[in-house]
């Protein structure tokens, strides 16, 4: 085994250490790179921006804590955007493992950031199991699925829900989704009830949703930390008074950028070693 071959079969733990150091450096010394806006994120922002005060959207927290770093910033930005526009937000959760906890945390954050009022500006209806069934049932009557909110207040006594009975009374449904639930929002809710659907997904899932977006089954996609940082940037541009609030996705993009560079380096390094090994083997033969 020659030196190039040894380098080619580099121990994966070395790669792990370099990736770890690459992730650590921008956390200690932030770079502050500029955010480029992509059309799928702009489409979602524009759709919300075009709404009028009093319009309502459904924000479905279909993710757990593992996806929090990628999807929490999207939730924060969308909630801030709606609060500034006076758009009512109906929060639901269809993800069993922590979805409702993620919703509680984001609404608490909104209370702290913008003094939004539970029940008046937004409501958190809580969690319901068996995602496709409640999704379909909400097309007829949301109250049949969520007879009360996460705090046990009856649906009919919540001011923000006045006049909202089904998807027909909503302008948009946004699912911040991991696993299969995002696809169901497209295949079940958009296809059967016609309501506009937008998705916030992890970076890994984002490519899949481009196909749905191009087919006009989703109005836009926020993909991973980059999507979150773009929405943060758009909200900050439109509402300069929000600039002081935390922008964790924008900060996270520094880490993502450096780790991407590390991976690109290893891919190129691996290929150089691969070619050298091949040539050496050919030469030896």
């Amino acid at each position: 085994m020659n030196w190039a071959h040894k380098l080619l079969l580099i121990d994966r733990r070395i790669i792990f250490v370099v990736v770890f150091v690459g992730a650590l450096i921008p956390i200690i010394w932030p770079i502050g790179l500029a955010v480029q806006i992509s059309p799928p994120v702009k489409a979602v922002f524009d759709r919300v921006e075009a709404m009028k005060p009093g319009d309502a959207i459904m924000l479905s927290f279909d993710y757990g804590p593992s996806d929090g770093p990628e999807l929490d910033p999207m939730a924060n930005s969308i909630l801030r955007h709606c609060a500034k526009k006076g758009i009512k937000v109906i929060g639901v959760s269809l993800f069993p493992l922590g979805g409702v906890e993620m919703a509680i945390a984001r609404f608490m954050q909104l209370d702290t950031d913008l003094k939004a009022r539970n029940g008046i500006d937004y409501v958190n209806l809580g969690y319901k199991d068996g995602a496709p069934a409640p999704m379909k049932a909400m097309g007829d009557r949301i109250e049949s699925v969520f007879p009360c909110d996460a705090n046990g207040v009856p649906y009919s006594e919540i001011p923000v829900l006045e006049g909202i009975r089904s998807y027909d009374d909503l302008e948009l449904a946004i699912s911040l989704a991991t696993s299969i639930i995002g696809e169901w929002w497209i295949n079940l809710v958009n296809a059967q009830f016609g309501i506009d659907v937008a998705l916030g997904t992890t970076a890994v899932s984002a490519p899949k949703y481009y196909a749905f977006m191009e087919a006009k089954q989703a109005i836009g996609v926020l993909g991973g930390m980059k999507g979150g940082s773009e929405y943060e940037e758009l909200v900050a541009r439109a509402y300069p008074d929000l600039k002081g609030l935390s922008r964790s996705a924008t900060m996270g993009m520094d880490v993502q950028s450096v780790v991407h560079l590390v991976i690109i380096f290893f891919i190129l390094f691996g290929n150089v070693m691969f070619i050298v090994t091949k040539r050496m083997t050919r030469g030896a033969n």
């Binding site: 007829d140 009557r141 006045e162 009975r165 009374d169």
Partner: peptide
């Protein structure tokens, strides 16, 4: 039967 805004232009009454 429900509330909406005048610009909505339509209202679907159910049940």
């Amino acid at each position: 039967a429900g509330r909406t805004t005048i610009s909505a232009g339509r209202f679907q009454d159910i049940e």
